[in-house]
Design a protein around this nucleic acid. Structure first.
Lengths: 193, 193
DNA sequence: GTCTATATAAAGATAGAC
DNA sequence: GTCTATCTTTATATAGAC
């Protein structure tokens, strides 16, 4: 277990993570983050001397590793069938801030250092897409499903679950999970009669 | 046919549309738009006195109406079966700049006037989601498909097609359309053996 | 480790000449 | 209708006191 360098550095990282993931790199200011962390914005530079761009890279990387762990935990703790595993993944994804790959690719990453952008891109792929593709692959080996491009299907599952983050807030979180469950059933069985 | 107020106003609107849709409200500057339109940024305010926010509202509204028309045209010109109609919709969507609903909802719209934001939100629903839901509904009435929440399925189809805008550029546009076609088949028949 | 004060640069916007 | 010049505000960032 890694000890956080300091409590208030940690508050800064959490505030930054939540804001950057929700609104994107350009839409969030250092002052927004400082305010959410409860400190003066000048103090941010004590904790992260590299400034806004470094903060984004650190926090996005961290967020993606957290996803990697969250996804894997969800999958291993789920019942050993495709529907349960995908539902566990969806429940995890909906418990986190929206992870908007379109924005990440087209807006956030072009604003930062290219090398860092590449690393984040690769990590996003490994941490979030691959675990879903692996679940599908396992089901394929068991003979319960079959498809020539499981990566494509994994991407579609991911996109459609994340898309639920854009639906106007239903009564409770439960409802979004219910919608996710409906979608998983569609991916498995289709909507054809 | 509505005449454009002026050629250069139209160039401004097109530049703004393309940039805003790709990178979002906050990530695009008035200077970016002016440069893409080939004029000085001060001249933007001659064409759109309301400034950046008004420009975003006008251009986003216009973009959504264009989607409404593009979707309907795609559907009526397609063969009269679900797969063809959804493929036509996907082909249209992939021919346009990415329409990122997560970013629109969580980042762009909160930056502008609330009333305008509501209208854009409703329009997005009517222009893009409803046409897909209608196609599904028609297929349902014909008895070829069946699902208790076609709006949810329509949203998933939309999200997963749009998600293809985040995949690293394949060889040609065709490949994305091919991926879209694979996904449509999955939505209809599922991946279960 | 946090603040005040300040520097620097960029963005949105306006005035007015041409 | 477009430009130059300018204004104002905001954002990122630094210096230095406490």
């Amino acid at each position: 277990m890694v000890e956080p360098k300091s409590q208030s550095r940690e508050r800064v990282l959490q505030a930054a993570e939540s804001l950057f993931m929700k609104r994107g790199y350009e839409a969030v200011t250092v002052k927004d983050i400082a305010k959410a962390a409860g400190i003066h914005h000048a103090s941010i530079y004590h904790h992260i001397p590299g400034g806004k761009a470094d903060l984004f890279v650190e926090v996005t990387t961290r967020h993606l590793y957290q996803h990697q762990k969250g996804m894997r935990d969800a999958i291993v703790n789920a019942e050993d069938d495709l529907h349960s595993q995908l539902l566990a993944v969806a429940t995890w994804l909906l418990s986190q801030p929206p992870l908007d790959f379109i924005r990440l690719t087209n807006s956030d990453l072009p604003s930062i250092d290219e090398k860092a952008a590449d690393e984040i891109n690769n990590l996003a792929y490994e941490a979030v897409l691959v675990p879903i593709a692996d679940v599908l692959e396992q089901a394929c080996l068991k003979g319960v499903v079959d498809h020539p491009n499981l990566g494509n299907v994994a991407g579609a599952i991911l996109s459609s679950i994340q898309g639920l983050h854009a639906v106007p807030e239903p009564d409770v979180l439960n409802t979004r999970i219910y919608m996710a469950e409906q979608l998983i059933a569609v991916f498995i069985r289709g909507i054809a009669k």
